[in-house]
Amino acid sequence: MPISFKEVSYTYSPKTPFAYEALKGVNVNFTEGKITAIIGSTGSGKTTLVQHLNALLLPSAGEIEVLDRKIKANIPVKDLKSLRKMVGLVFQFPEYQLFEETILKDVCFGPLNFGIEPQEAIKISKEMLRLVGLDESYDERSPLELSGGQKRKVAIAGILAINPQILVLDEPVAGLDPQSSKAMMKLFVELNRRYNKTILIVTHNMEHVLAYSDDVVVVDQGSVIRHVTKDEFFMDDDILNELKIAPPAIINVKAMLKAKGIELKGHHLDLESLTDAIVKEIW
């Protein structure tokens, strides 16, 4: 089933002097069951794009298909709740959404809203809190007295507990320490591989794109200008140059080797295969 945008445009504050067209005729078809990284410079429209997926924003023009649902311009969406159960969206700064007295209650909030039995909700919520790396001692603490990064983990657990089929993450690890962000990214990969969840991640971190994604979608000035696989993306120097993206370290190493006259054959996007190739080339 498709997750696709057809000629989707979105204008903020339409018909006022402050009108701003943040999306301009976007066409894109996200592959189900994959991890897609959405990249693009600040203000290019990534957040606007992903907020269409669970109908937080409705297109000003065009059409969106999410699984078996269609969202069209100027037509109210029926049964929003079931759509939002299918598409879980973690916000760019999710730490602002916490409000319950205890962390456990806050994580349960989503599942309970979607009609899951209290006992079951508590069970899932505890499970998700452990998954994001918060142990039992946190369950009964107030979410308001956590650090920014811990709040973010709670917020992510709150969406995971809804158990959506499509998981949309808007810069989920920005501001987390390297260990936590690595663990978090690995968790997303695990959810994808084990439970076959479709995952869309907005990120500025090229190392993450390289290490964890399958596909790459590039947003620029309100349009999707590229949708390629990760390998194509990083093998193509032109794209990297054109987008002024500082490539990940491995790509840099390859470029340096090339400059020194050592040309490697084939694709090497992880450390192991790169070292193997270098060993082969030099010996």
Binding site: L80, L89, N113, F114, I162
Partner: peptide, 16 residues
């Protein structure tokens, strides 16, 4: 802006 953002965040968690 803040209100809108929080409304959206809670809507994603099934608030209606």
């Amino acid at each position: 802006e803040e209100t809108q953002r929080i409304m959206k965040a809670q809507a994603s968690r099934g608030v209606d």
